[in-house]
Amino acid sequence: MRSAAVVGTGLIGTSIALALRGRGVATYLIDRDPEAARNAAGLGAGLVAVPPAPADLAILAVPPQHVASALREHQLRDLAHDFTDVASVKVRPQEEAAELGCDLSRYVGGHPMAGRERSGPLAAQSDLFQGKPWVITPGAGARRQAVDRVTELAELCGARPVVMSHAQHDRAVALISHTPHMVASLVAARLLHGDESQLQLAGQGLRDATRIAAGDAELWTDILGSNATAVADVLEEIALDLREVVDALRDLGAGAAAPERQRTSRAHLTTALARGVQGHGRIPVRTPGGMRLSGVAAGK
């Protein structure tokens, strides 16, 4: 890849541009917010300009609800030979792009599985994607050259390309990203009801559990709304688990409850915690040689 146009110079777009510039790719920055583009350029992410000739690849680093309209706009302007996006939802942008009459043969969806709780170009890092999965979701009509260019983009950024269907991707991120963000936000919101003396006792465990809740609320509203059904399915299952835990705790808190009921409730609580340990053990850990399951999941 010799040239790329990055549309949207927030955290992800600027991080991609920095990574590409570090690999010698001529990178052009486009943003409706001139200050954001200038800040990205000031970091060395590229030139604030439209490329003089169509770039090899345009990366649409815009929220999910704007992907299709941005794709149509920049295809009509002949910004690049091929196009990708980095939105964290894939089904809806693909459907909307088809409805708008975009050339889907030159468009391959993408999603780098990396980010930070901070946003904006000044939070960007050239190594943000190093060793991280980068999901690629080619549609049935995507041409081979477009798929190859998006794969090369991921590799130039130091990521590991992973090919999935649009629906597979959206179900996966509902489980491992979108629902955790919503749950972390709900837990963090409870802190609004705590007094200062309580919050002074907060430790690293609470910070770890709520760290991602610091993300941009408007952006996450767009993300969750664009993947609403898949997220709702996971949250509904969590709600059922929570109901069982609440009932068990109520029973344990009622000292007058029958001993047998107390034992049953304690067993429910232990089961919920043990399943959490087992689930946590299934999260892959990063190693110099790639990804592997953690010791718990691997039976160690």
Rank of each mutant, 00 (worst) to 15 (best):
L156Q: 12
R32V: 14
T221Y: 07
S69R: 09
P133I: 01
A40C: 14
L29I: 06
A58Y: 08
V91Q: 10
E95I: 10
L242I: 06
D82A: 10
L20F: 13
V150P: 11
A258F: 09
L201I: 14
P259C: 10
Q130R: 14
L192I: 00
G203L: 14
A45N: 12
G295N: 08
L199Y: 13
A19I: 04
A87S: 10
G279I: 15
I212Y: 11
L269T: 08
G289E: 15
R32T: 14
R32L: 10
L71D: 01
H166P: 00
L206I: 14
I283H: 14
R23W: 03
S177L: 01
D78N: 07
F129C: 02
R275A: 07
H268A: 13
E99Q: 11
V285W: 15
A26V: 11
E260P: 02
G10V: 05
V162H: 00
C102I: 03
F83L: 06
A172E: 00
G279Y: 08
F129A: 01
A258C: 09
I136W: 00
L252H: 09
E218V: 13
D148P: 06
D195Y: 06
H178N: 03
S88C: 12
I176M: 01
Y107G: 01
I283S: 10
S177P: 01
R160I: 04
S69Y: 05
V234Q: 08
P51M: 13
Q168K: 00
R250P: 00
G215Y: 08
Q125C: 12
I16S: 03
V173I: 00
K90A: 10
G279E: 13
L79K: 10
D33T: 13
L249G: 01
L11Q: 07
Y28V: 07
V91D: 04
I212M: 12
